[in-house]
Design a protein around this nucleic acid. Structure first.
Lengths: 125, 125
DNA sequence: TGTATTTATCGCTAAGTGGTTATATAGTAG
DNA sequence: CTACTATATAACCACTTAGCGATAAATACA
């Protein structure tokens, strides 16, 4: 059971790491619009074909996307759109974090300039 | 806007990478039970105190956990339990993947032994 | 005061990986 | 068959990082 737990933990970590790379997030975000082949993705994301191919292979190995060979081209598509629930959750978390960060920075600035809550600005001549 | 998008993407990727390491998943899983200090976590997870401290600092920097200093000890706790929704989603994905993998392996075995859908087993004497 | 305890940080190493270029493979068109 | 196109893979580099031990810093306790 400890052994199994270890395996499962590695699997979960691997799944998370699939989403831990900006390029892969961009790939998934593009595939959200529909099936794309390797070359188009490479051009769209501004990186090499080899790089895209490697990332696609990894995502396919994890079962996040699937390949459909058509002639010499390989079209990839999202297998289970539930993966976007993941991204939405994280985006929400990041969003909250950013707003709280801004609030904190704001409070800091306010406390640095402690006095005179600035009534009206003098009008420009 | 492209610049902002890039920043946001990095943030999201960083958030995912926080969960992409088995040790950090174990930390979060332990903190799920309640507040813990560094030494206890190190002992519970069987790793060095320095390692745990580093992981905790990272998770705290991302806003996933928070520190409460008490004497010379530092107690950490989950900030927003919604992070476990994330883990549950991924665990479900991994679970589905494992079952489909088993099914595929099963089908492979069945096709390797192609004939005789094996009616009844001879009864044991 | 000094001693013990707890945590944070530094320096380091080994391993993993995202990116590149170059090459191999496999379809397609002529 | 040859040339071309699209993808996958290999070799490599640069960088990050998970882990360790050692040490510093801070607090509690005698």
């Amino acid at each position: 059971m400890d052994e199994l737990d270890e395996r499962a933990l590695d699997q979960v970590a691997a799944f998370f790491s699939a989403f831990a790379v900006p390029t892969r997030l961009r790939i998934l975000n593009t595939l959200r619009l529909g099936e794309r082949n390797v070359g188009d993705l490479a051009q769209a994301l501004g990186t090499s074909q080899a790089n895209i191919s490697k990332h696609l292979a990894l995502l396919a190995r994890l079962g996040v996307i699937a390949k459909r060979a058509r002639g010499t081209s390989a079209y990839y598509h999202i297998v289970d759109p539930r993966v976007f629930d993941l991204c939405d959750l994280v985006c929400a978390q990041v969003g909250r974090r950013l707003t709280s960060e801004i609030a904190a920075r704001d409070a800091l600035l306010r406390s640095a300039r402690p006095r005179t809550p600035r009534r009206a600005r003098p009008s420009r001549p």
